[in-house]
């Protein structure tokens, strides 16, 4: 039961969406982009999200794209995670996405929504960080194409009024060996305690993590240690753990110490799996 009212728009083009956003803002309104919309609906109910105008992106063709364009996989931000899983164009993404929320909810949760989410796990971003994907962003200043690793710093650093249209991923990374594992507080339900995703490009292992800090990240510092092939597994992992970000989560899902214990074992599994 949302206690506030909002205007609802369903533009069919990116231009329309962006203009609508600007127009509403101009009017002093608080507009929001709405993809799966699950955040506004569930957080709005408990006063943790608010909007008085909603711009639903699901009718925009670009945001629903799901195809290979030459050597690049283009995925629209309004695709639901279930649509992506069923089509399975990017196995690592399928593997990570299929652990988010639950199957039915993933029919509503979208790729763009998860990447831009306020709820800080944003697990679906991990594969893109590993694959050096590009993101297509549109805003008042037009369209831009950016390296995700540049613009995703803890969260997607969009300017006001901008929206994520697509991710573009090089085919080279799509077939690469990967490892993905989500560990929860207990059994198979719930937010991540730690989610680790890893991709092996040639002899280089890449590593991205959600659930350890209040943001997902890929750490090149950790990768340096992880890729010291001459050393023992333990030494490589110890090295990686010595350069963790500072803000380790300590909450009802698990304490900071325990998260590190879990991470250590997951890294072990990742390295063993990717040889």
């Amino acid at each position: 039961m949302l206690p506030f009212d909002f205007e609802y728009y369903r533009p069919e083009t990116l231009k329309e969406a962006v203009e609508r956003y600007q127009f509403l803002e101009h009017q002093g309104k608080q507009p929001t982009y709405f993809s799966g919309g699950t955040e506004l609906i569930t957080l709005g109910r408990i006063n943790l999200a608010y909007a008085d105008a909603v711009i639903d992106m699901k009718e925009i063709a670009e945001c629903n794209m799901k195809e290979f364009n030459g050597d690049h996989l283009v995925l629209g931000s309004a695709l639901s995670l279930t649509q992506i899983e069923e089509a399975n164009p990017f196995p690592l993404l399928t593997s990570v996405a299929s652990e988010v929320a639950d199957h039915t909810a993933r029919g509503k949760i979208t790729l763009g929504g998860n990447i831009c989410a306020q709820i800080f796990y944003r697990e679906a971003v991990l594969p893109f960080l590993l694959a050096d994907s590009q993101v297509i962003i549109v805003g008042p200043e037009g369209i831009r194409n950016v390296q995700i690793n540049e613009i995703f710093q803890e969260h997607l650093r969009l300017k006001k009024g901008e929206l994520l249209v697509q991710t573009v991923t090089d085919r080279r990374f799509i077939g690469a060996p990967f490892f993905a594992k989500k560990r929860r507080q207990q059994w198979d339900t719930g937010y991540p305690l730690i989610t680790v995703a890893a991709l092996k490009i040639g002899q280089e292992i890449r590593l991205a993590i959600s659930g350890l800090c209040p943001f997902p990240f890929r750490s090149e510092e950790m990768e340096v240690y992880i890729n010291r092939w001459g050393q023992s597994l333990e030494a490589r992992i110890d090295g990686a753990l010595s350069v963790l970000p500072k803000s380790i989560l300590d909450d009802v899902e698990g304490s900071a110490d325990y998260r590190i214990f879990v991470l250590r074992n997951l890294l072990m599994d990742a390295l063993q799996a990717l040889g």
Binding site: Q186, W187, D188, T189, G190, Y191, D251, V252
Partner: peptide, 16 residues
Amino acid sequence: VLNPQLRTYRPLRYGE
């Protein structure tokens, strides 16, 4: 109570 939702207060699910 820090977990007053079924998202964070978790009964058993199918398959567990």
